[in-house]
């Protein structure tokens, strides 16, 4: 049976201004779900709420229809790649992968170029290389669901292609939610696409809908 992550009835306000109000998203193990939205639309906030690092006034997060409450982070159901740096500067990459219980040889087999970096600390790497490694850390973590917030930021084209291949392969084991301003990469990867605008999510089945909802000027 494939696991299903769903979240809805989510309300979030900052200083009385409603950021998120009418949300519904679903992600199944075996699919990539894209989340698009303009700057400031609340994509990152939505992801943080679902991951559990930002408190919402109300939220309902369910796995296989069963609501998960409280500190569900202990169960490691969702892994999250934030926009900010993930690996602390004082942690070596080898230590990070060990703590995440990831086989380093497996990582090297999918991305041989990063082999030389494993004894470095995160602060010793370029932003692009580090971003790729952090995305791998999340994609290969044991959690059945991954949320990636702007994974392509700072990556050079060859690394973007590598990451896209790895995301496509990883979806056999996981459900992946991905958000990025490089919308072409997101739409190309996604099996299901949502647009977040005015605090609401809309499922996008035709690309023309992105223009209708004001996300794109033209196709």
């Amino acid at each position: 049976m494939k696991n299903i992550l769903e979240f809805d009835s989510l309300t979030l306000s900052f200083d009385g201004l409603k950021i998120l109000s009418s949300i519904y998203m679903q992600c199944q193990q075996g699919e990539v779900v894209g989340l698009l939205g303009r700057n400031g639309s609340g994509k990152s906030s939505l992801m943080k709420v679902v991951f559990g690092t930002l408190d919402a006034e109300y939220k309902s997060v369910r796995v296989n229809g069963v609501s998960i409450h409280g500190n569900y982070d202990q169960k490691r159901i969702i892994a999250f790649l934030p926009q900010d740096k993930l690996i602390p500067s004082y942690v070596s990459l080898r230590t990070a992968f060990r703590l995440f219980e990831i086989d380093i040889d497996e990582i090297i087999s999918v991305a041989p170029a990063i082999k030389e970096f494993f004894n470095f600390k995160s602060q010793e790497l370029s932003g692009g290389s580090l971003r790729l490694i952090e995305a791998l850390l999340i994609l290969y973590s044991p959690a059945p669901f991954c949320i990636l917030d702007e994974p392509f930021t700072g990556l050079m084209p060859v690394h973007i292609e590598t990451l896209k291949n790895i995301i496509s392969k990883s979806k056999d084991r996981k459900g992946i939610i991905i958000s990025d301003h490089m919308h072409r990469h997101v739409t190309e990867l996604s099996d299901r696409l949502y647009l977040l605008t005015n605090g609401k999510t809309y499922e996008v089945k035709e690309r023309e809908r992105l223009v209708e909802l004001g996300y794109l000027n033209s196709l």
Binding site: F51, G52, T53, N71, D73, Q74, K75, R76, A79, F80, P82, D84, K85, L86, I87, P88, V91, A96, L99, F100, I138, S141, A143
Partner: peptide, 18 residues
Amino acid sequence: FSPSQFYFFKNLGYSKTR
């Protein structure tokens, strides 16, 4: 001054309080 490191530990199942 360094709140982003908590994402790393939260991914390992450790909230700030824990």
